Simulated scan of single mutants.
Amino acid sequence: MTRRRRERTRGDLYEEVTARIIAQMEEGTVPWVQPWTSKGPGSPALGLPQNAATRRPYSGINILLLWGAAQEQERESQLWLTFKQALALGGAVRKGEKGTTIVYADRFTPQREKQKAEESGGAAREVAFLKRYTVFHVDQCDGLPDDAVTGRVPLPPRQIEPDAERLIEATGADFRVGGDRAYYVPSQDFIQVPPQAAFRDQINYYRTCFHELGHWTGHATRLARDLTTNFGTKDYAREELVAEMASAFLCAEMGIVPTVRHADYLASWLDILREDKRAIFRAASLASKAADFVLAFRTPQETDQRAA
Rank of each mutant, 00 (worst) to 15 (best):
residue 1 M to G: 14
residue 1 M to E: 09
residue 3 R to W: 11
residue 6 R to M: 12
residue 7 E to Y: 13
residue 10 R to W: 09
residue 13 L to A: 08
residue 17 V to P: 00
residue 18 T to P: 00
residue 18 T to F: 03
residue 19 A to D: 06
residue 20 R to I: 06
residue 25 M to F: 07
residue 27 E to G: 06
residue 34 Q to L: 07
residue 39 K to R: 14
residue 42 G to N: 08
residue 47 G to Q: 03
residue 47 G to D: 02
residue 49 P to G: 00
residue 52 A to Q: 02
residue 58 Y to V: 00
residue 64 L to M: 05
residue 66 L to D: 01
residue 67 W to T: 00
residue 70 A to L: 06
residue 70 A to R: 01
residue 71 Q to K: 12
residue 72 E to Q: 14
residue 72 E to T: 12
residue 74 E to V: 11
residue 76 E to R: 13
residue 86 A to C: 06
residue 87 L to W: 08
residue 93 V to H: 04
residue 94 R to F: 12
residue 94 R to C: 15
residue 102 I to F: 06
residue 104 Y to A: 14
residue 106 D to P: 09
residue 107 R to T: 12
residue 108 F to R: 14
residue 109 T to W: 15
residue 125 R to K: 15
residue 128 A to I: 13
residue 129 F to G: 02
residue 131 K to G: 07
residue 131 K to R: 15
residue 133 Y to C: 09
residue 134 T to Y: 08
residue 138 V to Q: 01
residue 146 D to L: 14
residue 149 V to I: 12
residue 151 G to H: 05
residue 152 R to H: 14
residue 160 I to A: 03
residue 166 R to D: 12
residue 166 R to K: 13
residue 171 T to E: 07
residue 176 R to S: 06
residue 176 R to T: 02
residue 177 V to H: 12
residue 178 G to W: 04
residue 179 G to E: 05
residue 183 Y to I: 01
residue 184 Y to T: 00
residue 188 Q to K: 14
residue 189 D to L: 00
residue 190 F to A: 02
residue 191 I to V: 09
residue 193 V to P: 00
residue 195 P to V: 10
residue 197 A to S: 11
residue 198 A to N: 06
residue 198 A to C: 05
residue 209 C to T: 00
residue 217 T to Q: 07
residue 217 T to I: 02
residue 222 R to Y: 07
residue 223 L to H: 06
residue 225 R to S: 02
residue 226 D to S: 06
residue 227 L to E: 03
residue 229 T to R: 09
residue 235 D to Q: 10
residue 237 A to P: 15
residue 240 E to K: 03
residue 241 L to C: 06
residue 243 A to Q: 03
residue 244 E to D: 09
residue 251 C to G: 06
residue 251 C to N: 07
residue 252 A to F: 04
residue 253 E to S: 15
residue 259 T to K: 10
residue 263 A to M: 11
residue 264 D to I: 04
residue 271 D to E: 15
residue 279 A to Y: 00
residue 281 F to L: 07
residue 282 R to E: 05
residue 292 D to Q: 15
residue 294 V to G: 02
residue 296 A to L: 08
residue 301 Q to S: 13
residue 303 T to K: 14
residue 308 A to R: 14
